[in-house]
Design a protein around this nucleic acid. Structure first.
Ligand SMILES: [Mn+2]
Ligand SMILES: [Mn+2]
Length: 293
DNA sequence: GCCGAGT
DNA sequence: ACTCGGCAACGCCTG
DNA sequence: CAGGCG
């Protein structure tokens, strides 16, 4: 791979307050690629682009640019409302990832399904969004209860920080259901959590009704929605990283998401490697969740 | 980051 | 030669 | 139905 053919403007300032340059973002993804690719490979990718850094104008882009190189793959996805096909890029190797990063992509936003089975998600997600002034700490007991119930039903959840204040649990599933099924499965479990923790969580879609609660955003499992994937940088001061966690850390609660960032993450990766390295060893059937009534 | 339309 | 706008809807839920 | 939401 010839980086000099892929990278432009390496000295552009991307995180002004932290003196983090475009070349630092490129280097981060170059060095982290082996930990990232197992999770994002072959997933339809939505580009959230910051060509002038996090303080500049940003935009989302689904359609792969006409000028993209052949080594960036694409997949046509039907958009029902617009009645048209949209060609999404998907990453299959490091070179493709770095090309996207050079385009100003800072965050890794991917579908929960993989090519070619794009209509069958292989991840079920539990998206914990603490409504301010709640914070990451308030997600912890909710995440633990989710894990406990999932284990009782025979499913395994993998925790990470979102990089902001929230938390994500990913459950690897067999890609044999549709998005409506996985969304229903997530809803069923979230409804159970609401029953157990009515003071802590909410399923309300109207923001004004969420005050003081953690929003369990089960709709994040719908078709066309994306999630931030493991080891994604976030476009926030200090360049926080969406960081895989030990359940022991979730239990102890002595961590905060801001401590995992582009500068500090390497010490953690050296100590633990990829904490999700066994994520793909087993996939689960969501049937027990569909039967929760 | 790059293209294309307008000036 | 230069500037400037565009680059994203999807699909669900609520009232 | 229009509008909110992520
Ligand atoms: Mn979230
Ligand atoms: Mn959310």
């Amino acid at each position: 791979m010839d980086l000099s053919k892929i990278i432009t403007n390496p000295d552009k300032l991307f995180y002004p307050a932290d003196l983090i340059f475009k070349k630092d973002v490129i280097a981060y993804y170059y060095l982290m690629a082996d930990h990232i690719l197992p999770y994002i490979s072959n997933r339809p990718f939505v580009m959230n682009r910051f060509p002038d850094g996090i303080a500049g104008k940003s935009f989302y882009q689904k359609e792969i640019p006409a000028y993209a190189p052949n080594f960036l793959n694409k997949v046509a996805i039907w958009h029902e409302k617009e009645k048209k096909w949209v060609n999404y890029p998907y990453v299959a190797h490091k070179e493709a990832l770095l090309w996207l990063v050079n385009q100003g992509v800072i965050e890794l936003h991917c579908w929960l399904s993989e090519v070619p089975q794009i209509e069958n998600p292989d991840i079920l997600v539990f998206d914990l969004d603490p409504e301010p002034p709640l914070s990451f700490q308030d997600c912890l007991p909710v995440a633990l209860l989710l894990r406990e119930v999932l284990l009782k039903l025979g499913l395994e959840a993998w925790p990470k920080t979102s990089g902001k204040e929230g938390m994500h649990l990913f459950v690897p599933i067999e890609p044999k259901y549709g998005f409506k099924d996985t969304t229903r499965a997530a809803f069923n479990l979230c409804r159970l959590i609401l029953k157990a923790y009515p003071e802590k969580v909410t399923l309300e879609r109207v923001i004004k009704k969420r005050t003081g609660k953690v929003y369990l955003d089960y709709l994040q499992n719908s078709r066309g929605r994306t999630m931030v994937f493991p080891y994604s940088l976030r476009p926030l001061p200090k360049a926080p990283v969406s960081t895989p966690l030990l359940w022991e850390e979730v239990t102890k609660g002595e961590i905060s998401p801001a401590e995992f960032n582009i500068k500090t993450i390497w010490e953690r990766v050296k100590k633990y490697g990829d904490l999700w390295s066994n994520f793909h060893r087993r996939r689960y059937d969501i049937k027990p969740l569909l039967e929760l009534m």
